[in-house]
Design a protein around this nucleic acid. Structure first.
Lengths: 124, 124
DNA sequence: GATAGGTGGTTTCAGAAAGTTACCACGCGG
DNA sequence: CCGCGTGGTAACTTTCTGAAACCACCTATC
């Protein structure tokens, strides 16, 4: 990696940014993580993820479906059942997602400490 | 991990979500990744990241500083120099961040294919 | 037989976040 | 003197998120 080409780097950043905009946000990470334990229906997902509104869950799931990470299967019984599951691509994605989630869990205390220290530094 | 406690799982999701909200978004990933190559000044960072506005870069950097991932050093020359660098915590964070960025680069084609397939399925 | 609750969403609308643009003080090169 | 580069902030606009209500349909309860 000698003599890095900064124009190429910038282009790569823009590209990664565009892709990240598609497949990562706070909710994506949580949803993929939960679906990693097995298929799940809409309201069950909602309950498990916690503080997510129906609208945002619905649109996030549609995005995930559009980008090929999640499949949506409707069983036409009454009331209709809609089951969400990870695709192969989604299961692949699980690895970086879990890396992120685990890091956050392991380092939460350090982040909190940094925040407290920052607040003290600013207020003084 | 037998007999998962779903209430605890939901609480964990909420907690992870809160932490993720602090340390990850599209821009955070890109900025940390660039700073992983070494310290960088404001406008250099801006040029390298690409399509980011000054305002968003400034506020993202302040968030990163607040959460202890990035340090900000002002050298009072004229014009003043402001150098941003990763802290120890930020360098630790580099690993999951790189995992994410690499996954996105490796799987961009699969995502694009899924999008094309989805678009075809919907429009028909 | 009305009423409450669960199914998987959409609609509506306020408020928050992100993005765009302009501007600041300062110096330096042409 | 004009514009560029330094590191931002302020005002304004657009986009997005979040809370709540509503929908049709079914089941269980009182």
């Amino acid at each position: 990696m000698q003599a890095p080409d900064y124009q190429a780097e910038t282009a790569q950043c823009v590209f990664i940014g565009r892709m990240l905009g598609r497949v990562t946000d706070k909710w994506t990470v949580l949803i993929v993580r939960v679906l990693g334990r097995g298929p799940c229906r809409f309201n069950a997902l909602r309950r498990e993820v916690g503080e997510i509104s129906q609208k945002v869950l619905a649109s996030t799931l549609r995005d995930l479906e559009e980008n090929g990470l999640v499949s949506r299967t409707v069983t036409p019984v009454n009331p209709p059942q809609v089951e969400y599951a990870l695709t192969d691509l989604g299961r692949d994605f699980l690895r970086p997602i879990r890396g992120l989630a685990e890091w956050v869990l392991e380092n939460a205390a350090r982040i909190e400490a940094a925040r407290a220290e920052y607040a003290a530094r600013v207020s003084t």
